[in-house]
């Protein structure tokens, strides 16, 4: 211990790990994480005992990465919330509430949704056409700016004549409906996943 060999070895291993983290951060453009790693490297160079005395080193490093990961998660969530809202546009209040929570997760490299949405790496997070991506970003921007989203009032009113006709002529459908009703009620079944990604599901009876 006194000749520093063990300390040097442990310091070198810690340095390798921080270098690895730094390189990964640089490749991902996580500038503050890379700078944090560089700072640690310099401290280890000056004081090999640094990794022994700085107990929270790895926790602190993870804390630097978390905002980047959270931002990615929040951006994804915003899209899923938009998709669910856009499907029927029947519950804008629920969508607004969920989006508000998701927006709080955005921080790196910006907390502004519009800024993030314009960054190519964030565009690449979303699997959709450019046209639909535009609808997504415009809708979220509108929600942010106005606190409101459009609603569709779903109603069968436009087909009221069809519904009334169906009721009036229900007896003429008796034969078709009886034919359907005479069919057996098929029991539920089990769907088994295949052995590999080229395979097919297999249906088997439960009984």
């Amino acid at each position: 211990m006194q000749n520093g060999l063990y300390t040097g070895g442990a310091a070198a291993m810690a340095m390798d790990r921080v270098y690895a983290n730094k390189q990964a951060a640089e490749e991902m453009g996580w500038t503050d994480v890379a700078a944090f790693c560089e700072d640690i490297i310099q401290k280890i160079k000056v004081e090999p005992y640094y990794t022994f005395t700085h107990y929270n080193l790895w926790t602190d490093l993870q804390a630097k990465k978390d905002p980047w990961l959270k931002t990615i998660e929040g951006f994804h969530r915003l899209f899923v919330d938009f998709m669910e809202y856009d499907d029927t546009r029947s519950d804008p209040e629920r969508a607004l509430s969920k989006m508000a929570e998701d927006l709080k997760m955005l921080s790196k490299p910006s907390s502004d949704f519009a800024t993030l949405a314009a960054i190519p790496s964030f565009r690449a997070l979303i699997d959709c056409s450019d046209a639909y991506y535009k609808e997504f970003t415009e809708t979220v921007c509108k929600a942010v700016a106005t606190g409101r989203l459009d609603t569709i009032q779903w109603s069968a009113a436009s087909c009221q004549d069809q519904i009334e006709q169906l009721w009036d002529k229900r007896n003429t459908l008796l034969e078709a409906c009886r034919h359907w009703y005479s069919q057996e009620v098929r029991p539920p079944c089990l769907r088994l996943s295949p052995e590999n990604a080229d395979g097919h599901y297999k249906l088997i009876a439960i009984e």
Binding site: D16, A24, K65, L69, I72, H76, V80, I126
Partner: peptide, 29 residues
């Protein structure tokens, strides 16, 4: 080695955060 694993796991944590939800998106529709 350990440093190698940390490097790959670091890259991976970001890749998984980016890719997994993207793979799930078509399923939502």
């Amino acid at each position: 080695c350990e440093a190698d694993a940390h490097y790959l796991q670091d890259l991976l944590s970001a890749d998984i955060a980016k890719t997994t939800p993207r793979l799930l998106q078509p399923e939502h529709y």
